[in-house]
Amino acid sequence: MDLNADLGEGFGHWTLGDDKALLDVVTSANIACGAHAGDPDTMLAAARGVAIGAHVGYRDLAGFGRRFIDVAPDTLTNEILCQLGALQACAAVAGARISYVKPHGALYNALVRHEAQADAVVDAVRLFDPRLAVLGLPGAVWLKRAQVAGLSVRYEAFADRAYTSSGTLVPRGLPGAVLHQPAQIAERCVQLATEGWLTSIDGRAIRVRADSICVHGDTPGAVGIARAVRDALVAAGVSVRAVPRVDASRSIA
């Protein structure tokens, strides 16, 4: 099982989360690319030691990318391309390369159902490098479109977020949407990795397909949560490693 976290989400002298500590725990890092957060300093600092994912989002620093924007598809494609290019440059300087693409925040949620924006993001990945994997919520429209386009699809579950009975995330504004107890979170992640199901917010057992588990870097106590999850997975006999690249021999420069 891959364990990923959202990193590089500071901007200038503002910091968010403990990237350095999380990099010692996770196997993949979703690095902000300067649209919802992030700058060259944070991108370069985060691009080390683990698999690198481009955490692309709406161009919305003020809203941290958590507000839906009805951006034209062609414009969205170009904005995603710019973000991928920025992270590629920082990764190359750090002697690394991008492995996958994961949308952020409101864009992540929109791509579950928004067909025009789904196509726009798929087009951006395909134009930039069709060998990159894409990571998202099982059942999302954009992952279905990505498969049709020949991209490699990876499915994600969330360690610290509650699920509805339909398998979607409980909106952040609702009570109980974000989980905070490391032991509880670790237990549900083991259940997910070994049995393939989670308990929804209303107590129902739901099937969840996952290649990767995400711990949000901005969740209070994120480092402790990530360590608890990793330790619990290892104790349960689950191998914790990054999802293999589509083409491990390629070099992006």
Rank of each mutant, 00 (worst) to 15 (best):
K102P: 04
V215G: 01
L44N: 03
A46E: 01
D211N: 15
A106Q: 06
D211G: 06
D123N: 14
Y58F: 15
P220G: 03
V246Y: 05
Y100V: 00
L76Q: 04
R97P: 00
R188Y: 05
D70G: 13
S166P: 02
D24Y: 11
T164W: 07
L169R: 04
Q88F: 08
V190T: 00
V93A: 13
A157R: 11
W14M: 14
R66G: 05
A54I: 10
Y108C: 03
D6N: 13
A110S: 13
V178T: 11
E156G: 07
F64G: 00
R145N: 11
V134D: 01
F68R: 15
T164R: 15
A32W: 02
L132K: 06
Y108E: 03
P175V: 03
A177V: 08
N109Q: 12
E195K: 15
G34P: 00
A45N: 10
D123I: 02
Q88W: 12
S166V: 13
L198M: 15
V101T: 08
F158P: 02
A118I: 03
P220H: 03
P175L: 06
D41E: 15
F128G: 01
S239F: 09
G203V: 09
W14H: 15
P244A: 12
L84M: 10
E9L: 12
A5V: 08
V243W: 08
Q184W: 08
A228D: 00
